[in-house]
Amino acid sequence: MSSSLHLEKVTPDNVEAACLLKVRPDQDGLVKPVAWSLAQAYAAPEVAWPRLIFDGERLVGFVMAFFDVRFDPDEPDDRLRSGLWRLNIAADEQGRGYGRFAVEAVCEEIRRRGQTRTTVTWVPGAHGPEKFYLKLGFRLTGEMSGDQVVGELELGDV
């Protein structure tokens, strides 16, 4: 993995390139396009943390975290959660450690904000990211968020 990996905010200068980023065709139904994610971030700026993943000057992916959200706002016992909301790695850039870098960056931001646990959801299926998240240490919680499986990772002491 390159030592020049970094996250950048989405800006007027890079938003078009971000919206053109495409995952593999077999992943299309498993993750929303970046443009959709940016619309969600615009609509929920108090919880969304969208970032572009660069290797040097090359855009290789998009990650968006969320902070302090309840999966079921109508359930008073549902705890606040923070975690990975969206991860899109360009089709021809997958398998090079960019996803791992993005997840680790989100976990670091969650730690920086004083939390010790991160959540992720994914659509189950043959081409889905379940093996990827389990390999990173996420465990299944047994919960569902809509049609998505919920995984959780303990981050340890902050």
Rank of each mutant, 00 (worst) to 15 (best):
I53H: 10
F54D: 02
G56V: 09
E57A: 15
L59F: 09
L59P: 10
V60F: 13
V60L: 13
G61W: 01
G61A: 09
F62Y: 15
V63G: 09
V63R: 03
V63L: 07
V63M: 06
A65M: 13
V69W: 15
R70A: 10
F71H: 15
D72H: 14
P73W: 14
E75C: 14
D77I: 07
D78F: 00
R79M: 09
R79G: 09
R79L: 11
G83I: 12
G83Y: 11
G83S: 08
G83L: 12
G83T: 09
L84D: 04
L84I: 08
N88A: 14
I89M: 04
I89V: 15
A90T: 09
A91S: 15
A91V: 09
D92C: 05
E93G: 10
E93C: 15
R96L: 11
R96S: 11
R96T: 08
G97H: 03
G97T: 03
G97E: 01
Y98W: 09
Y98V: 03
Y98N: 04
F101D: 02
V103F: 05
E104C: 07
A105C: 07
A105H: 03
A105W: 03
A105L: 06
V106D: 01
E108T: 12
E108M: 11
E109A: 14
I110M: 02
R111Y: 01
R111P: 13
R112Y: 04
Q115E: 14
Q115D: 11
T116P: 07
T118I: 10
P129Y: 07
P129A: 15
E130L: 14
E130Q: 13
